[in-house]
Amino acid sequence: MKFTVTVTLKKDVLDPQGKVVLNTLQNLGMDNLKSIRQGKYFEIDMNDIDEEKAKKKVDDMCKKLLANMIIEDYKVNKI
């Protein structure tokens, strides 16, 4: 059973890396860019257990380690 987790900085936290990427893309002539936020992406492969249970575990992983809840949000998707 596979899940993906995306971790991004919360909206009100400054993302200097995203800003530099945005500036560079604009220098490359990419127009119509509004903003870019950089984040982290995880692929988690789990044993085939009950889906609800697995989801809860992934949620727990995010809260305990993958994301720092002070500055980051996360999204879990089953694939």
Binding site: P16, Q17, N68, I70
Partner: peptide
Amino acid sequence: TETGLLKGVLLRNKNL
């Protein structure tokens, strides 16, 4: 800060 013994977080330096 990661353990929670101190509150807050150390972000990347502003000038990267």
